Computed example of a mutant assay.
Amino acid sequence: MPLLPDAGHIPTTEELAEIDAWFAAYDGYSARREIERMADVAVFPLNLVSDDSQGNGAAAQWDRARFVETMTQVMGGGDEDITFESTRTPVFLSPAMVIVFTDSAMTAGGHTQRLRYADILIKRDGAWAFQTMLQGGWGDNLR
């Protein structure tokens, strides 16, 4: 596969720091299971792209209520925090659009799970918010 020529937006140090800060805050909400706060930094309807247990691609749009309901169910109501160790690679399409690829290790209750996913964030009124989530294995929840 040929490499694409340099294209898109070359982020400034400040823009990269904004993305790092956004994910630090979001990971904190996730770690504390603050689902409503997670929803506060999303743009609804939220696009989700995944695959299901049958190996088929799946896509859906969720409103805020569906996001909160599903994430509450998935993340459970445990008392211990969830920890994340993540390596992120942002690819800016413009100063207001970025795709962020993440390799992460999530630990909860002594069990660690490795994750690979991507998020599309957009900047509105000076603040970043996620608009699309891409991750394998969620397709059965998208029906």
Rank of each mutant, 00 (worst) to 15 (best):
A7I: 06
Y29P: 02
R114K: 12
L115G: 02
L4Y: 12
T107Y: 04
D63K: 00
Y26V: 08
D6C: 10
V43L: 10
D27W: 11
A105N: 12
E18N: 08
R114N: 07
E85T: 11
A65N: 13
V91C: 11
V74P: 00
D20C: 04
N56R: 15
G8T: 05
P45H: 12
H111I: 15
S104C: 07
S30P: 01
S86L: 06
V43S: 09
V43F: 11
G78A: 15
V91Y: 10
N56S: 12
N56P: 04
L4Q: 13
G76I: 10
V74H: 04
T13A: 15
R32F: 08
D51A: 04
T107P: 02
Y26D: 03
S30A: 15
D51M: 01
A21N: 10
R33C: 06
F92H: 06
D27E: 03
H111G: 15
Q73I: 09
T87F: 01
E85H: 13
M75E: 06
A105T: 05
Q113S: 15
G8Q: 04
P90I: 02
T102M: 02
N47D: 13
R33G: 10
D40L: 08
P5L: 07
G28F: 00
G77Y: 07
A25I: 01
A108C: 14
A108K: 10
F23M: 07
A108S: 14
G76H: 10
A59E: 10
D20Y: 01
L48P: 01
T107F: 04
H9V: 10
D6Q: 13
A105D: 05
N47L: 14
R66H: 12
I19A: 00
E36I: 09
S50W: 02
P90G: 03
E36G: 13
Y29I: 02
S86Y: 01
P5M: 05
F67G: 07
F23R: 02
